[in-house]
């Protein structure tokens, strides 16, 4: 609880309201890193080309907790499902319009029955965002209105599935307040603003 309160104060001092949030600049940075999440190598190349720095987050940091959660999930799946691998938890960071933006990648691969199915994800975070920004910049890039919009109090999210005029299978922008169970420090999966692209591929 103390940690939550401390984080809340920190977030409050660094936050930006929807009207002042530099959504266009953050979306531009997202496009530069996650515009074509074909593979972890492709994302690393995009990071080099667009000013993102790879780093190892401190375990106690917000990104460190999210990465730990992903790795824990991978270790849980491994003994149950030898054909599925969760891997490639790489972290990047960049300062965008004065805000500290961090990013992660993940990759799930299933190799069985003569085919390989891969889901590669690239996600940026602004942990100190204080509200869901306008999704207009992302909508313009996606080329159509979101397929789904939800606002439950625990999370606000807009998402696009399939048929995007981009090499992206799924696109999501979400805001998770620090009070959401999803931001519980013990098993944090989302916090603040996050934008994620995923590409699903099937090879025979």
């Amino acid at each position: 609880m103390i940690a939550l309160l401390a984080f809340g104060l920190a977030a409050g001092s660094a936050g930006a309201t929807p009207s002042t949030y530099p959504a266009a600049a953050v979306v531009d940075a997202f496009k530069g890193l996650c515009g074509n999440p074909a593979s972890i190598d492709a994302i690393r190349a995009a990071a080099r080309d667009n000013g993102w720095a790879e780093f190892i987050p401190a375990p106690s940091s917000d990104l460190g907790k999210i990465l730990a959660n992903g790795k824990a999930m991978a270790s849980q799946i491994a003994p149950k499902d030898a054909k599925m691998q969760l891997s490639a938890f790489v972290a990047f960071r960049k300062t965008v319009a004065g805000r500290d933006i961090e990013a992660t990648t993940d990759a799930a691969t299933i190799a069985a029955s003569g085919k390989t199915i891969t889901a590669t994800g690239c996600q940026i975070y602004d942990f100190t965002a204080r509200a869901m920004p306008d999704d207009g910049a992302l909508t313009a890039w996606a080329g159509r209105a979101p397929d789904k919009k939800i606002d439950t109090g625990q999370i606000s999210m807009s998402s696009w599935d399939n048929g995007l005029a981009r090499p992206i299978s799924k696109l999501t922008i979400a805001y998770t307040p620090a009070t959401s169970p999803l931001a519980d420090p013990a098993r944090m999966v989302m916090l603040g603003l996050s934008i994620k692209s995923q590409q699903f591929t099937v090879t025979q």
């Binding site: 999930m73 299933i110 889901a119 999210m157 998402s159 799924k170 999966v189 995923q198 699903f200």
Partner: peptide
């Protein structure tokens, strides 16, 4: 089945 990391969203 393929994307456990996206389960929450």
């Amino acid at each position: 089945t393929i994307d456990p990391s996206g389960q929450t969203a």
